Computed example of a mutant assay.
Amino acid sequence: MIVVAIIGFVCLVYSIFAFQQKGPLLTTMYFLVNPEERKKMKTKTEYLFVATVYLGIAIMFFSILIGELFNLSWMPKVTIIFAIFLVIYVIVASIWSEMAKKK
């Protein structure tokens, strides 16, 4: 349970920094491109996307923690449903972002 709490807290803190547009973008593409391209990637929409995703991950970990602490048998179902919505959001937002870049 401590590990789940720590991961949730770290994701929440990173999300707060990303909403403020500070720090690196923790995405795969950010680490694969050269430093010049990294500067181009640091846009308001990219920070908003990453911050939203990490906030969703933090909420998932905290819901797991609450379910374990209070022994709620229905909480895993809520967490899975939330995870499905988060995955759908990531896919749709990524496709929309790529289509906007190509215009």
Results as ranks from 00 to 15, higher is better:
residue 96 W to A: 13
residue 35 P to K: 05
residue 76 P to K: 10
residue 80 I to P: 00
residue 19 F to A: 14
residue 40 K to A: 15
residue 66 I to H: 03
residue 33 V to P: 07
residue 60 M to I: 13
residue 8 G to C: 00
residue 66 I to F: 12
residue 67 G to A: 06
residue 62 F to P: 06
residue 5 A to F: 01
residue 77 K to D: 05
residue 18 A to G: 01
residue 28 T to H: 05
residue 6 I to Y: 05
residue 73 S to K: 06
residue 10 V to P: 00
residue 69 L to C: 04
residue 82 F to T: 10
residue 4 V to E: 07
residue 11 C to G: 00
residue 67 G to Q: 03
residue 90 V to T: 12
residue 77 K to E: 02
residue 50 V to M: 12
residue 61 F to C: 08
residue 11 C to Q: 08
residue 48 L to E: 08
residue 8 G to K: 04
residue 61 F to P: 01
residue 65 L to M: 08
residue 29 M to V: 15
residue 8 G to S: 02
residue 9 F to E: 07
residue 99 M to V: 11
residue 20 Q to V: 10
residue 80 I to L: 12
residue 92 V to R: 08
residue 92 V to T: 12
residue 77 K to M: 04
residue 7 I to H: 00
residue 103 K to S: 12
residue 84 I to H: 01
residue 73 S to N: 10
residue 19 F to R: 14
residue 44 K to M: 01
residue 33 V to F: 05
residue 67 G to D: 03
residue 98 E to N: 11
residue 69 L to R: 10
residue 97 S to C: 04
residue 35 P to C: 09
residue 27 T to N: 09
residue 12 L to K: 06
residue 2 I to R: 01
residue 20 Q to Y: 04
residue 29 M to S: 13
residue 21 Q to A: 09
residue 70 F to Q: 11
residue 64 I to E: 13
residue 53 V to T: 04
residue 48 L to A: 11
residue 45 T to R: 15
residue 95 I to H: 04
residue 76 P to I: 05
residue 75 M to V: 05
residue 50 V to F: 04
residue 31 F to S: 03
residue 3 V to K: 02
residue 85 F to P: 00
residue 33 V to I: 13
residue 34 N to T: 05
residue 69 L to A: 10
residue 2 I to S: 04
residue 55 L to D: 02
residue 4 V to I: 09
residue 8 G to Y: 01
residue 48 L to P: 01
residue 95 I to Q: 06
residue 19 F to N: 13
residue 100 A to Y: 10
residue 102 K to S: 12
residue 3 V to P: 00
residue 62 F to R: 06
residue 88 I to K: 00
residue 72 L to G: 03
residue 15 S to G: 13
residue 55 L to M: 12
